[in-house]
Design a binder for these strands. Structure first.
Lengths: 208, 208
DNA sequence: GTGGTTTTGGACCGGCAAGTCCAATCTCTG
DNA sequence: CAGAGATTGGACTTGCCGGTCCAAAACCAC
């Protein structure tokens, strides 16, 4: 069973349509009939190109959206080598999510983590790749002496990942990006902290 | 239509059972038959005590779990007035989520945000209350001079909320609490930063 | 244009799960 | 203990949705 060009085009149309639907105003539960309606296709076609049925399709969509998420942050994400770049990235990220509002493609995927086998895998991979970009950025700043060398790069990058995930999550619930913004501000601010000569004032030293 | 003591007990049993089921190993989709099985009740009873059906029940469970989430962090959360308290809270939080693993009651709720009308409201309220506890904690530390006064309390508390949400989210996907831990460490570390006399070294001043 | 292959359309099936209904039973009050 | 009202059990209805199937149409190579 091989696909011709036409077949592959149809297949892609289905993925696009499903992805768009999930990203749109009312995902909740996506039925195959929804997909059919959106993509102007039929059950026959869906099952032809996604033999595993709904689950199969959802997984493809997950992969597809994973790509998108990272792509949309470029070129900033790949070039976090100056404070200006970090700022540009922050701004782009916030703008993107603000525009997106409550709908989150990744969020919709996360919802299926329990349901669709393999989707946890996909998301984990995405987060991993995302984190690596950030790690590179921080390392680059360290090399330039812009970030102190005793900062744990991996940990800090992990915090960014967590922050973004959490921020988006809060956004999904409240519809506000303020929390996401707060988090990014604080993390970047923290990134800019210099080491200190000695512990000042009362309390314990600042660096654990 | 009034409920007797017996009736209320049944009602509560249904909520407890449903909550426990959602928290247990295989939520995915909870059907009313699942609830029936777990709580030893019948459809008749479920509809008697939750006239709105499934949605109605889920909302009650959401409220119930909201309470739990905060309760489980007490007494620490209510008394964040020393570094020891913050540490105890952090430890309790991590232990709690580690024990819980991939299952997240709040997460299950979040999944329904799109589906169940009113659940966004419930979660928003929860986050708000949670944040207030943290704000009080930070303010208390400021009063004691343990935290610098130019720190934006609300913003910082928001970051904690975001961090926890994100950490739990990552936990749900990866099964690891490391990200959550990184985030909490960094935020608390940041909380401990003292203001600095002047901008040192190259780069811009640390405080934006 | 002919035959083989791919693509498409859509009728159909089967099961599951939400929700309805009512008769039987229990419980509380006077 | 009588009777009203609350509670319970579970059969039944309904509609949706994933999945199957196959025949018609389109496409392609020779």
């Amino acid at each position: 069973m091989t696909f011709t060009r036409k077949g592959l085009a149809t297949r892609q149309r289905i993925i696009d349509g499903a992805a768009e639907y999930l990203r749109s105003d009312e995902p909740g539960e996506m039925t195959l009939d929804d997909v059919r309606a959106v993509t102007r296709t039929t059950k026959g076609q869906i099952y032809r190109y996604f033999p595993g049925g709904k689950e199969d399709l959802l997984l493809e969509v997950a992969k597809y959206e994973s790509e998108r998420v990272l792509d949309e942050q470029q070129p900033h994400l790949g070039r976090l080598d100056s404070w200006e770049a970090w700022d540009a990235w922050r701004i782009a990220l916030i703008a993107r999510y603000r525009a997106q509002g409550r709908q989150c493609p990744l969020g919709s995927l996360l919802n299926q983590v329990g349901t669709v086998a393999g989707s946890a895998e996909v998301v984990t991979t995405l987060l991993k790749r995302w984190q690596v970009f950030i790690e590179r950025g921080i390392a680059s700043m360290q090399e330039q002496g812009e970030v102190r060398h005793d900062l744990d790069v991996e940990k800090m990058a992990a915090a960014f990942i967590v922050g973004i995930q959490g921020g988006v999550n809060v956004l999904r619930v409240t519809g506000e990006t303020t929390h996401l913004e707060s988090m990014l501000d604080i993390l970047i601010e923290h990134l800019r902290e210099r080491e200190r000569a000695a512990a000042p004032l009362p309390g314990k030293p600042a660096v654990r």
